[in-house]
Nucleic acid binder design. Structure first.
Ligand SMILES: [Mn+2]
Ligand SMILES: [Mn+2]
Ligand SMILES: [Zn+2]
Ligand SMILES: [Zn+2]
Lengths: 150, 150
DNA sequence: ATACAATTTGTAATGATTACAAATCCAGAG
DNA sequence: CTCTGGATTTGTAATCATTACAAATTGTAT
């Protein structure tokens, strides 16, 4: 949701992160892609824009972003991590048929309170798994997909 | 929560699983351990009882149990998977200080309905991360612990 | 005892992530 | 402008959980 070309740079500056070309480009990608991409997907997507990009840079940059609250890392299944540029806490639905990860808007009472049973909450991860609305209307799965560790 | 020595055997039989010695012993361990153990923890715990045990057997057996609803597999962080013998859906709290995984009893409206936004729900994973009640009352962390991928 | 299928086991392969050091970049000093 | 030190980026190797696969073992029916 960056509206102007300078958006990524300004976001980085407000967080005290030096806005290098790599960081701006990576941030733009993770903010624009609403698919909760994996490292591999981001790497393939970014290679044209950053021909020298290394996966190590992706890992370290995304960890930097996550530590500053710019992105969140999802461990929705035991395979590859996924990155979400929509940083506000929200729940996710993983479709076991097409593999899509869909944002959910579910009110979580515990989140508001900031604690459960006296335990202080710093992160909330709500994961639902099943068959998405779109896949239910088809008889066959759209994309035969191997879910990791399935 | 097996009350008699034959409990594990009977549970396996009711699920149509041949109750071998390994399976009974593994099932007993995962039902009795309420710590959401990793494969490695289960392996170390079971080695005295099953000296010939291989990790491959643990992986395949726990996957068999999970597919029959006897246990659930948690992906609460991107490191090792954890196994839960308490199969009824419930939420979890991971303490970033001591590493404990604590069961929570939180009502989830979406779970009752069986769907969200038209997506059919088959699994629910509610993960909270933070500092548990016990660790908050101590100034120092009890066990300096390396959280995976931290 | 024999044969056969299921189960268990050991080893190798896979694949994501991390560790680490060399290469590169870049802002400031002179 | 040139030099320089620290931050950043990159490439390669190591780590580690998990899976693949085939051999060994087990148990049961004939
Ligand atoms: Mn999301
Ligand atoms: Mn539990
Ligand atoms: Zn789908
Ligand atoms: Zn704790």
């Amino acid at each position: 949701m960056i509206t102007n070309p300078e958006g990524a740079r300004e976001i980085l500056l407000t967080r005290g992160i030096k806005p290098t070309y790599q960081r701006q480009t990576i941030l733009r990608a993770v903010l624009e892609k609403r698919t909760h991409p994996t490292i591999k997907a981001l790497y393939d997507h970014l290679l044209p824009a950053i021909p020298t990009l290394s996966k190590t840079t992706l890992y370290s940059t995304l960890e930097l972003f996550a530590s500053r609250g710019l992105v969140s890392r999802l461990s929705i299944d035991s395979g590859e991590a996924r990155y979400d540029g929509f940083a506000a806490p929200h729940h996710h639905f993983l479709c076991e048929a097409c593999g899509a990860i869909i944002d959910l808007d579910i009110a979580c009472p515990a989140a508001r309170r900031g604690q459960v049973d006296g335990h202080k909450i710093k992160e909330i991860h709500g994961y639902f798994k099943g068959v998405c609305k779109d896949c239910q209307s088809h008889v066959q799965y759209k994309i035969p997909r191997r879910l990791s560790h399935a």
